[in-house]
Computed example of a mutant assay.
Amino acid sequence: MNRRSFRDIHGILLLDKPLGLSSNQALQAARRLVGAAKGGHTGSLDPLATGLLPLCFGEATKIAGWLLGSRKAYEAEVKLGVTTTTADLEGEVVETRPVPGLDDATVEAALAPLRGLITQVPPAYSAIKQDGVPLYIRARRGEAVDVPSRQVEVYRLDVLERAGDTLRLHVECGSGTYVRSLAVDLGAALGCGAHLTGLRRLWVEPFMAPAMVTLDELHAAAEAGPDPLDACLLPTEAGLAHIPRVELDAAQTRVLGFGQPVPLGATATPGRCGVWGDDQRLMALGEVGTDGVLRVLRGFNLPPP
Rank of each mutant, 00 (worst) to 15 (best):
V213S: 08
P206W: 10
L169M: 13
L202Q: 11
A221M: 08
A188K: 12
L199E: 05
G174M: 07
R201A: 08
L218G: 02
P210F: 05
V171N: 07
C173F: 12
R200K: 15
M208L: 07
V204R: 01
L199Q: 11
M212G: 01
G191P: 02
H195V: 00
H195D: 02
L196I: 13
A224N: 10
L167H: 07
P210T: 02
L169R: 00
V179S: 11
A211V: 05
D165R: 06
L218A: 03
D165Y: 03
W203F: 14
L167D: 09
E223S: 12
G187W: 02
A221Y: 06
C192A: 09
A183Q: 01
L169D: 07
G198L: 14
L196H: 05
L186T: 00
R200G: 04
T177P: 14
G176S: 14
L202A: 14
A211R: 11
L186E: 01
E223N: 14
G174S: 15
W203K: 09
L199W: 09
E217N: 06
H219P: 02
C173S: 15
L186N: 03
T197C: 03
V204I: 12
A211I: 00
A163I: 02
L215S: 05
A163T: 03
E205G: 14
H219N: 00
T197K: 04
V171H: 08
H219I: 06
L202R: 14
L202I: 13
A222N: 04
L182D: 06
L196C: 10
G187M: 10
V184Q: 03
T197R: 02
E217C: 07
G193V: 07
A188D: 13
A183R: 02
G193H: 12
V204P: 00
D216A: 15
T214R: 10
E223Q: 15
L169I: 01
G198E: 12
A194F: 08
A188F: 06
E223C: 11
P206A: 08
V171F: 12
L182F: 11
G198R: 13
P206V: 10
A221P: 02
A188Y: 04
A163R: 14
G176T: 15
G176Y: 08
L199K: 07
T177C: 09
E223V: 15
G198I: 13
D185H: 04
G176A: 13
S181Q: 11
P206N: 13
C192Q: 01
R200S: 12
D216Q: 15
R200Y: 08
P210Y: 09
V171Y: 07
R200T: 13
R180W: 07
L169T: 03
A183F: 07
R201P: 10
R200H: 15
H195P: 05
C173D: 08
G191T: 04
M212K: 14
